[in-house]
């Protein structure tokens, strides 16, 4: 059953002196509970896709539907996690985590317990009254994760949320996110340029081409890898096979680009 559907979505960016076509004919579906990665070089429109799904701006052509309804009609369906945490420095960790309920008038107080519980679950107990500047990068990104999860979104959009972290923190956080998404049975779309991360975390990988952004190829992640934690996946023999395949695909793209330009 298709859950989220993108149907021939295109997007243009307009400027005073011209325009660029950022996306062309993007079509894919996301099943409930599925984890998809969008993999591609920077500037291929990966983030634009997320912005369109989240409703930050509207695509110039095509349709995005969630459970057969236009995405704009379904409120609260989306949780968005950015490259940096963007915690509000003047709010405490707890108020940062409670930002979603506050905005949607979901009664901040009744959610307080949930927030504390989630913070504990991501390994952050006892920091609720601290301010973001007192926390390390990895901790801050975990708070951002709680802030995203607290509104119980149906789909999580992850826009390279691990790329600003050091390698060890990144691997740990991948495990944590992977585990949480499995437990709460959430669907997710991860944007990344890290092949390893894409394989470790997702069920399906869409490799994108650029100028304009298109979906070049789709890779299914072997079933043995899907239910493992990201760190374990990296040790699996099939990981390397898939890695090499995707690598070859990206290299091919690069060569084509070199030839055409």
């Amino acid at each position: 059953m298709s859950f989220l559907t993108l149907d021939r979505v295109s997007h243009h960016y307009f400027y005073k002196n011209g325009y660029t076509k950022a996306l062309e004919n993007i079509s894919f579906t996301l099943k409930e509970g599925e984890f998809i990665s969008l993999l591609g070089p920077s500037g291929c429109g990966k983030s634009t896709i997320l912005s369109i799904i989240s409703g930050l701006f509207k695509q110039t052509e095509g349709h995005v539907t969630l459970e057969n309804k236009p995405i704009t009609e379904s409120k609260l369906a989306i949780g968005y996690m950015l490259q940096q945490d963007y915690l509000f420095p003047w709010k405490t960790i707890l108020s940062n985590a409670l930002l979603g309920p506050k905005i949607t008038n979901n009664n901040e107080d009744s959610m307080r317990q949930t927030a504390l519980q989630l913070l504990e679950e991501v390994g952050l107990s006892g920091v609720a009254d601290k301010y973001p500047t007192e926390l390390s990068g990895g901790m801050r990104q975990r708070v951002a994760l709680v802030r995203t999860l607290i509104n119980d979104p149906k789909i999580l959009l992850l826009d390279e949320p691990f790329s600003a972290l050091d390698y060890q923190t990144k691997l740990k956080l991948e495990d944590l996110v992977g585990k949480l998404l499995k437990t709460y049975h959430k669907s997710a779309i991860l944007v990344t340029h890290d092949i390893g991360e894409a394989i470790a975390m997702s069920d399906r990988i869409l490799v994108m081409g650029s100028n304009p952004g298109t979906i070049a190829k789709s890779f299914e992640v072997p079933i043995e890898l899907r239910n493992q934690l990201p760190l374990e996946v990296r040790k699996h023999p099939k990981y390397q096979i898939l890695f090499d395949k995707i690598w070859a695909e990206l290299e091919e793209k690069e060569k084509q680009k070199g030839r055409s330009s």
Binding site: Y80, L82, F88, L99, I103
Partner: peptide, 29 residues
């Protein structure tokens, strides 16, 4: 003010006034 703060708020469906009250004004204080 960094537009990403507004992006975070808008992803929760915040109105323009909520963006002002929660992000823009305190950041400018």
């Amino acid at each position: 003010v960094d537009p990403n703060y507004e992006k975070v708020l808008k992803s929760f469906g915040a109105t323009k006034w909520q963006c002002f009250k929660e992000a823009v004004f305190p950041a400018t204080l």
